[in-house]
């Protein structure tokens, strides 16, 4: 039996380690998909209304594309994100902003849901479990932001990553399918950046070194209907 010298042993070990690590490195994203959401993260957004262009709806289009929504705007159609133009009653100043699920820390929709279908993940994302939703629409009654839509018609051409269901309630998911793949930007924020507006900043509110946390420390921002005490994850600048 030949004796293994030190050099061969080290070389062999290094190769073994490389073989072991390489796929792990490549599959980092997939591996993250298997991690449960952690409360070390709270996903949120800072919307800079001064950068949001009137008439631009790139964020809406990107959301519809990402999530396989038809993009119709009738009273019975699903809208996960919408553009709203506002006028200050006293000053007459006009503001444009995107409106969506505010991913509240204390979400009224989760409180009222009889089956627990509406739930908040540890990382602050508020979702609807499509298997538990019975379609009672109590969450839509309770939501202070009109963020939710009810699927009024049979669905066709769904995206496998974004399962939906007739007769259930749905809303913005912060593109959870992206986040769980490790892509830490929502489709709307990405589209807004691409259009050069950079009005939507998405990030981790719990990380003091994240861009969003640093910016929130610097600029004056407000949460919609902060008086209700639901602590939305969306902050609006310039409102």
């Amino acid at each position: 039996m030949s004796e293994i010298n030190r050099r061969d042993f080290l070389r062999g070990s290094a190769m073994m380690a490389g073989l072991a690590v390489a796929p792990g490195m490549m599959l980092y994203d997939l591996a993250r998909a298997n991690q449960p959401a952690s409360s070390a993260v709270r996903w949120g957004m800072l919307i800079d209304t001064s950068q949001c262009e009137e008439g631009c709806d790139d964020c809406v289009k990107a959301c519809n594309k990402e999530n396989g929504l038809p993009g119709k705007t009738g009273p019975t159609d699903e809208q996960w994100i919408r553009k709203v133009e506002l006028k200050n009653v006293k000053t007459g100043r006009v503001t444009s902003l995107p409106m969506m699920c505010q991913h509240c820390a204390e979400p009224p929709c989760v409180d009222v849901c009889p089956t627990g279908a509406s739930f908040k993940r540890a990382d602050g994302i508020v979702l609807v479990d499509r298997h538990l939703c019975i379609g009672c629409r109590y969450c839509m009654m309770a939501c202070p932001y009109k963020a939710r839509s009810f699927v009024h018609e049979p669905l066709h051409d769904q995206k496998p990553e974004v399962p939906r269901g007739k007769g259930t309630v749905e809303s913005c998911t912060f593109c959870v399918q992206r986040i769980d793949r490790g892509k830490d930007i929502t489709a709307c924020a990405e589209a807004c950046s691409k259009a050069g507006h950079k009005a939507i900043l998405f990030g981790n509110l719990n990380d003091p070194n994240s861009e969003i946390s640093k910016r929130l420390k610097e600029v004056a921002s407000t949460q919609l209907r902060a008086d209700l005490g639901v602590d939305p994850g969306l902050h609006y600048e310039g409102l």
Binding site: L86, N88, M99, K146
Partner: peptide, 20 residues
């Protein structure tokens, strides 16, 4: 329910695709 929610106090909604 027909009466709209007051989401933006102090503001008047000029346009919205979702009936705000």
């Amino acid at each position: 329910q027909a009466f709209p929610l007051m989401i933006f106090p102090g503001y008047e909604v000029i346009s919205s695709t979702f009936g705000d």
